[in-house]
């Protein structure tokens, strides 16, 4: 009897062509963006030689500096708070007995993912406008609150996924070995769910760093983050400085993800 080769998508005609086309389509614009960040001239279309001048210029630009710092500060705080909340939510929806409305709560936690961002942005604009008028307070707290809120479901998903694949006999075994509830959490549950927490934190951080729509609606004067600053610049003169900033953001993101995979694969 002739042996049939096991099914493999590689044997489908055109597999390689489609794969190559997809990668080219995704990465060509990025490659062009990165290439022109090194352009010696002012153009985004005409190559005038290699130079790092746009990087120096971006680094020396005080607006870029303050926007970058503000972005990191906002993403750092929001992602951390969101991750703590998401961790508690994930524990409450996986490590508890069934209670009425558990499914409902699960849906509520994830609902922000379905609501169009622009709707949330308008809603926040209206509510925060009232609060700002009523209190006269215009600090970063509004941005932090908004970012924390929309980061929670992104942090929640990987943490919950991790908890669900974790064998709860490990926690039983720890309780059997005289660990109290807090010790079980501290010594078993928390370390075991750490890869999920780190993934959630990073996802939340990236989502916050990336946000334009909600930030644009919620921010007060002088509270530009890196994305809203870039958007503002694009409305005026476009120079390869934007490319340089974007390139740094892309590589910083890639670096973070690499670190995460390295950390999580070392844990196993």
């Amino acid at each position: 009897m002739a042996e049939r080769a096991p099914f493999s998508v590689q044997t489908i005609p055109g597999f390689a062509a489609i794969a190559i086309f997809t990668f080219v389509a995704i990465y060509t614009p990025l490659v062009i963006l990165v290439a022109f960040s090194f352009n010696a001239g002012d153009s985004l279309a005409i190559w005038e030689g290699f130079s790092l001048k746009w990087y120096y210029r971006a680094a020396a630009n005080e607006q870029v500096q303050s926007a970058a710092i503000r972005s990191l500060y906002l993403a750092g705080i929001s992602a951390s708070v969101a991750t703590v909340a998401a961790t508690m939510a994930a524990l409450a929806t996986t490590r508890t007995r069934h209670f009425p409305g558990k499914t409902m709560i699960y849906a509520l936690i994830n609902q922000p993912l379905m609501i169009p961002e622009i709707v949330t942005a308008v809603a926040l604009l209206i509510v925060f406008a009232w609060v700002k008028v009523a209190t006269g307070h215009t600090s970063m707290i509004y941005l932090i609150a908004a970012h924390t809120a929309f980061c929670i479901p992104f942090a929640y998903l990987p943490i919950r996924a991790r908890l669900e694949t974790m064998d709860d006999t490990l926690e039983k075994a720890a309780a059997d070995l005289y660990a109290g509830r807090w010790q079980v959490f501290r010594r078993i549950t928390l370390p075991m769910m750490m890869p999920g927490i780190i993934a959630g934190l990073m996802l939340a951080f990236v989502i916050s760093m990336d946000d334009v729509v909600i930030t644009e609606f919620v921010k007060s004067a002088g509270q530009d983050t890196l994305p809203t600053y870039m958007l503002g610049q694009l409305r005026r003169v476009v120079t390869p400085e934007i490319n340089a900033i974007s390139t740094v953001v892309v590589f910083a993101g890639a670096f973070l993800v690499t670190i995460f995979f390295w950390v999580s694969s070392n844990r196993r």
């Binding site: 075994a173 720890a174 309780a175 005289y178 075991m192």
Partner: peptide
């Protein structure tokens, strides 16, 4: 509760703590 009983269990799937060494597993209780 289980942690107040002077009784220990060997689980069917062993339930060893994967993030700890052999010695630390034994040390836990």
């Amino acid at each position: 509760p289980p942690n107040k009983r002077p009784v220990n269990t060997v689980f069917q799937n062993y339930a060893l703590f994967p993030h700890m060494s052999v010695a630390n597993n034994i040390k836990f209780g």
